[in-house]
Simulated scan of single mutants.
Amino acid sequence: MSGSRSYGDLCGIARALDVVGERWALLVVRELMFGPKRFVDLHRGLTGVSQNVLSQRLRELEDAGVINRRVLGPPAGARVYELTRRGRDLEPVLLALGRWGSPIPPASTSATQLSTDALAFALKTTFAPAATDHLRGRHRYQLRLGHDAFHAEVTDGQLRIERGEIHDAMATIACDVVTLQDLVFAKRDLDDAVRAGDAVVLGDVSALRWLMQSFGTVDGDDGELAR
């Protein structure tokens, strides 16, 4: 970041904020945590930021060694942004911030739904390991959210989420972001979502229902993700 924005404080917290403390900076990191993205995809996930401000944050984060730009090989040939190893080291920071911020009521101007990557982070933030005590082995799930695909794996009480398709999922759900929000955080009944045509489920439905019930709440007041 530019010297004019520095706190001028030797504390490590202040020096970290010199790099990622600008508005939107950490949310850019959040959007890239599950893999590289094109500018247009970043802007789609951060609906409240202008293209000029997003471009500025990307330049600053690149200058600070938090992200890289590269061109995908053929046939794509698209320019994408991705986190460096130093950028990926921010994941536990973001998870801690998510847990700390979850009980705070959302502003009245907040968007009505999460971005796909923000939803993936919310799943990691609110996952309750105690709910997996009775499970043994590895359990893998496919989450298809519109044009985005993630897979979730639960092993020994740990949840791992990555972008992409897998071929050995025990259960697959295809739905939009709001439907998955409601299934996980508003505790909407999975059968109801399927009957209404809001979700398509393949594989072990009972295993998927267990997964939906393995998360805490995002809103500490009423047990729902405020919308």
Rank of each mutant, 00 (worst) to 15 (best):
A118K: 00
A111Q: 09
A152R: 00
T125C: 08
A128N: 14
A149C: 14
D156V: 06
T116F: 06
H151W: 10
R144V: 15
R144Y: 02
T116H: 12
R160N: 10
A120E: 05
G157P: 05
S115I: 03
D148K: 13
L143W: 06
A149E: 14
A111W: 03
A120P: 03
T155Q: 08
T132Y: 04
H151F: 12
A149T: 15
H147A: 15
Q142M: 14
S115G: 08
R136D: 11
A128T: 12
D156S: 12
F150H: 06
R138N: 05
L114Q: 00
H147E: 15
D148W: 11
T112K: 12
P129G: 08
L145M: 13
D117C: 06
S110C: 04
S110W: 00
L114D: 01
H139D: 09
G164F: 05
T125E: 04
Q142V: 06
K124Y: 02
K124C: 11
R160T: 14
S115Q: 01
A130H: 10
L159Q: 07
Q113Y: 11
L159P: 03
H139A: 10
T125W: 00
L159M: 08
A120D: 04
A131E: 15
L145Q: 09
D133Y: 06
H134G: 14
H139Y: 05
R136E: 13
Q113C: 12
G157N: 05
A131I: 06
R138V: 13
R144S: 15
L143N: 02
S110G: 01
L143I: 14
L119R: 00
T126E: 12
R163E: 13
P129F: 08
S115E: 01
A152Y: 01
G137V: 10
A122S: 07
D117W: 00
Y141I: 10
P129M: 09
A149D: 12
G146C: 13
A122M: 02
D148P: 03
D156E: 13
A131G: 14
Q113I: 10
G164R: 04
A111F: 06
L123R: 01
L135Y: 06
D117Y: 02
A152Q: 01
R138W: 00
E153M: 09
A111E: 12
G157E: 03
F127K: 05
A128M: 13
Q113M: 13
V154E: 02
V154W: 01
H139E: 11
A152C: 08
H134L: 15
R138F: 00
G164V: 11
E153W: 00
I161W: 03
R163G: 09
A152F: 02
L143V: 11
R144T: 14
L114E: 03
R140L: 11
T126F: 02
A131C: 10
T126C: 11
D156I: 01
L114A: 02
A122C: 03
D133H: 09
G164H: 05
L145R: 04
L143P: 01
A122P: 00
G157T: 04
T126V: 03
L145H: 07
L119I: 09
G146K: 12
R144Q: 15
L119D: 02
L119F: 07
H147F: 11
A128V: 14
L145A: 11
D148N: 14
Y141N: 07
